[in-house]
């Protein structure tokens, strides 16, 4: 049993060493090597929720972007970029298990809210696009964010925080997500994901949360209660 994938930045290889399968990965110099003590029927390499590296410290993704002023009642759809993490899954007996996660995107953490009541987030800075920008699918994905101001005050938005346990990730020509941000007041906003696949990204990625055996209790999104700036 053998498998090999290589591009200028990523090399993945599975070799059979006298019945023992060796997995090797090199992602821009970040190397991983291990032996697999079991057989499998398929290997899947897919984008996963970008909150796993270098270790799982949070399940929140925060995207920071240039300030956008939204009037009461107004709605605006913008495009943002988000970091892509790539998961390697092994399938056997109808079960899919995660083997490895790696990424070419830079990793930075941040705090949303106060140290006592806030949350640690995987932080990413994106530009704000009104048209679909070109993305490197190995490095960054495209988020379509529909912002709606249901409050009574004009609100400035410069960041969005998402709970990855409610994330729906799709891939095709690019990696994509569709999200909504409803502003309830200048201090409170609600972010959710859409389960509908974008036209050019028909394939649903495997939820790493589920593959790791966690049960998802939150599909209702995240309430940003520490402001949108």
């Amino acid at each position: 049993m053998g498998f090999s994938y290589a591009d200028p930045n990523i090399r993945i290889q599975l070799t059979d060493n006298a019945g023992l399968i060796k997995y090797e990965r090199d992602c821009a110099g970040q190397k991983e090597s291990r032996y697999l003590g079991r057989t499998f029927s398929a290997i899947h390499i897919l984008p996963v929720e970008p909150v796993n590296l270098p270790e799982t410290l949070t399940h929140f993704l925060e995207i920071s972007f240039p300030s956008l002023l939204i009037s009461p009642g107004a709605e605006q759809t913008v495009y943002l970029k988000f970091p892509v993490e790539i998961g390697v899954f092994l399938e056997s007996g109808g079960k899919t298990d995660p083997l490895d996660v790696f990424s070419l995107a830079p990793v930075k953490f941040s705090l949303y809210g106060s140290p006592s009541s806030g949350v640690i987030t995987r932080w990413y800075e994106s530009d704000l696009y009104t048209d679909i920008p070109v993305t490197d699918p190995h490095r960054e994905g495209l988020m379509s964010l529909h912002i709606k101001n249901s409050g009574t005050e004009t609100t400035t938005v410069s960041r969005a925080v998402f709970d990855s346990s409610s994330m729906s990730l799709f891939y095709g020509d690019r990696v994509a997500m569709t999200a909504t941000m409803e502003i309830l007041s200048p201090l409170i906003a609600h972010t959710t994901f859409s389960d509908t696949a974008p036209a050019d990204c028909p394939n649903r990625a495997i939820d790493l949360y589920l593959a790791r055996g966690f049960s998802i209790t939150n599909r209702k999104g995240y309430f940003m209660e520490a402001g949108t700036i």
Binding site: P54, K108, F109, L111, I120
Partner: peptide, 8 residues
């Protein structure tokens, strides 16, 4: 440095 928080 990855683990130094952006905010604060």
């Amino acid at each position: 440095y990855t683990f130094v928080l952006k905010n604060p």
